[in-house]
Design a protein around this nucleic acid. Structure first.
Lengths: 220, 220
DNA sequence: AACTGTGAAAACTTTCACAGCC
DNA sequence: GGCTGTGAAAGTTTTCACAGTT
């Protein structure tokens, strides 16, 4: 156990382990070793043990980790032991697609509502998720008990949306709008950018020693 | 100039610099300093200079970097100086949304075709992109001169798609299917996973010192 | 004066290797 | 025998600080 800051890469790996543990859980497997977890998530056994040991020691020497216990431990660490309520701002192509994305719900994120400037969209439902006009942003975020917001607007609107969302008390933002924004107070933010990933791929492809590094799985 | 391996984080930052340079270019700005680039991409001036110096020294002391020259240099480094041809496998929610995603084209990635198992979708066009049946995968990838493939199928199909795509000679894969797959030969791969990012956010939100680390912009 | 390019230092992350437990 | 937990070593990335150029 170690109380220093947990790095972003460690957190990403925890998500990968969690995915795997959920599968093992569903398959009825009881025990898993650091080697198994490493194998399934593209890292090394030592790395898995190091990652887990930062939060306590919950393996049994000679046997491994109990799937169910480790699973709920990681769910608690990531705070995904209860369903998180998410709102999407911008119901365009990407935003709209997220509203019907089953995997999010399966992994504990419920998209409770969306917002759009287009009055045609606002008032309707997309994949059974209600879309509200931007004017209702603050009141709905609060009445729906939204924990985190996904910004899927054009870049030019990102700053204003971020300001309003932060003022409304939201503590986490995932942005698909590849534009930087300033925040009035410290709020957790992550960015996703398809074009940036493709640029990275393009670079990897050009070097004759293509490697596989990244966010999610990995192959070795 | 330094010939060691370029790290993933460096490549990501290069993409951020490139974005900024394109904006500056459009705005008619001629010169930019490492401080400006740092400011706009959420890093430090020293980091910017270190990143750029790995590829040569193309700044002028006392002045900064010429926007147009630096821009085309980074475009060449990332190999995005010519339009890249991309195919999407899986025209479901996410895959379908990507077909109409304007930003990809603006940033040099042209989605030339898509594939889907659903015979209803195959044969049609989505946002003017032709969708072909899976049986035509190999022939179309080759006849369309596809450089890289985005896998947006359910996880269970990812391995088979990856096998076929790799066998067809594609050198780069971006996968939205959060499933690990093995590759018959070394090919550049990156993963994107919305739920994983939300889990990471959830963790950040739970620690009382929310930071902003990640893929794209940043705020300090 | 302003700003780059870069070695050297600091910080951080991963891997190694092995003692300790089941 | 098999596997965890962990210090110490190796490796990597970032920051510092300053000489050098325009």
């Amino acid at each position: 156990m170690n109380d220093r800051k947990i790095s972003d890469s460690t957190v990403r790996r925890l998500s990968l382990y969690l995915n795997l543990l959920r599968e093992l859980s569903a398959a009825g497997t009881q025990l898993v070793s650091s080697g198994d977890l490493a194998e399934g998530s593209g890292t090394t056994a030592a790395q898995v043990r190091k990652d887990l040991s930062r939060f306590g020691s919950f393996g049994k020497r000679g046997q491994g980790y109990r799937v169910s216990a480790l699973r709920s431990r990681i769910e608690r660490i990531l705070c995904v032991n209860r369903t998180r309520r998410v709102a999407v701002v911008g119901a365009g192509k990407i935003g709209g697609a997220l509203l019907g994305y089953r995997e999010l719900r399966d992994r504990g994120f419920e998209i409770v509502c969306a917002f759009d400037v287009d009055p045609e969209k606002a008032g309707a439902e997309i994949f059974s998720v209600p879309v509200y006009p931007m004017g209702e942003l603050e009141t709905r975020l609060s009445s729906e008990g939204v924990d985190m917001v996904i910004i899927a607007t054009p870049p030019a609107a990102a700053q204003e949306v971020a300001d309003r969302v932060v003022a409304a008390g939201v503590e986490g933002i995932l942005s698909f709008a590849g534009a930087k924004f300033e925040l009035a107070r410290p709020v957790a933010v992550r960015w996703m950018d398809v074009a940036l990933e493709l640029e990275g791929l393009s670079f990897l492809m050009s070097t004759s020693a293509p490697s596989e590094r990244n966010g999610t799985p990995d192959e070795g």
